[in-house]
Nucleic acid binder design. Structure first.
Length: 306
DNA sequence: CGGTTTTGACCCGCGC
DNA sequence: GCGCGGGTCAAAACCG
């Protein structure tokens, strides 16, 4: 993806001059002259158009601002959640098994939440305690659920790190293949990542991270998805801000709104130094996704002009 | 040409 | 012991 900062202003086909053919406009003028008998100055019409253009531009700007605010809130929530997860994980970091083979503590079928569920090995949830494998003591494991476009068949979850795919397998419980990735940025980094589509909802990618990165993100200025904390011990959850393909609705998979209250109650939450860049990237991505969808732009243009 | 992806083969743990 | 299935290896293909 391009790294350059791009204006996030939505380019919508809402220019009244373009939406109306010149022929139609001529006829309109002729009709006005014929009906009233008084020539309507072209200047007035152009003023109306300019006014309309300004109004649409203001609307456009407002939408962009709303998007930015949304991204900020999303980032703040994600940062807060990741910190909580990391704090909980440190208490259980001692539980590391050298065993190569691990039973996978994944429950894709019951977990449809979009977002980040860290440290599934922490077994803090009592519902899994009964069926938890006995050797489920392994390096830090976390899961990230990412909503993607269902038509997108790639198993790529961009999280800011550099991954090298080393295998793909079709598992029994899921017709979608599972891809295996290894961190290729540092040879000493043994973090692995498994990515598989959810069996229930193919639009959801489930990424399972094993291990901890012993390095920073691959490229700090790279157009990667915002990592919540550059020195995070776990994976960086990916903002799932994809547009739904078919309906002209936009689904932003953000955290529960109730969490915003928690965020407001903790003003001393440390803010990542990369936050502005991340926000910009988020806005950029969302805007790009939205503007790429002709249905969305058409619907938005209709809504604004209507 | 070097890094990445693909893909079939192989390894190994687990259940029967 | 055997078969199954998940995970990994490694050679070939691909790509910039």
């Amino acid at each position: 993806m391009e790294s350059a900062w791009v204006d996030t202003t939505l380019v919508l086909n809402i220019n009244p001059c373009q939406s109306r053919s010149s022929k139609a406009m001529k006829q309109e003028f002729v009709g006005e002259v014929a009906d009233s008998g008084v020539k309507v100055p072209v200047k007035d019409e152009s003023e109306v158009l300019v006014e309309e253009l300004n109004r649409v531009s203001a609307e456009n700007k407002k939408l962009t601002e709303m998007l930015t605010v949304l991204c900020e809130q999303y980032y703040a929530l994600q940062h807060q959640f990741n910190e909580l997860v990391n704090n909980n994980s440190k208490t259980e970091a001692a539980k590391i098994s050298s065993k190569k083979r691990k039973a996978v503590c994944e429950d894709y079928g019951t977990n449809n939440l979009i977002g980040f569920s860290g440290n599934t090995e922490s077994s803090s949830s009592d519902e899994d305690s009964s069926k938890q494998p006995k050797d489920c003591l392994k390096p830090k494991i976390s899961m990230v659920h990412v909503r993607t476009n269902p038509s997108d068949t790639s198993l790529i979850v961009r999280d800011g790190y550099q991954w090298r795919k080393y295998g793909q397998k079709v598992t029994r419980d899921n017709p979608c293949p599972r891809a295996y990735f290894r961190c290729s940025f540092a040879p000493s980094c043994s973090v692995k990542k498994k990515v598989q589509r959810s069996a229930e909802d193919p639009s959801i990618l489930v990424a399972t991270y094993e291990g901890e990165h012993n390095h920073d993100r691959a490229h700090n200025n790279a157009p990667a998805e915002p990592s919540v904390s550059p020195t995070n011990t776990g994976p960086a959850p990916v903002p799932s801000a994809q547009t739904k393909a078919s309906p002209p609705t936009v689904t932003l998979d953000l955290m529960q709104p109730a969490r915003m209250e928690d965020d407001a109650n903790k003003p001393d939450q440390p803010i990542d130094a990369h936050a502005p860049a991340i926000r910009q990237l988020l806005v950029h991505q969302m805007a790009a996704l939205l503007t790429r969808d002709p249905k969305f732009t058409a619907a938005l243009a209709a809504a604004i002009s209507g």
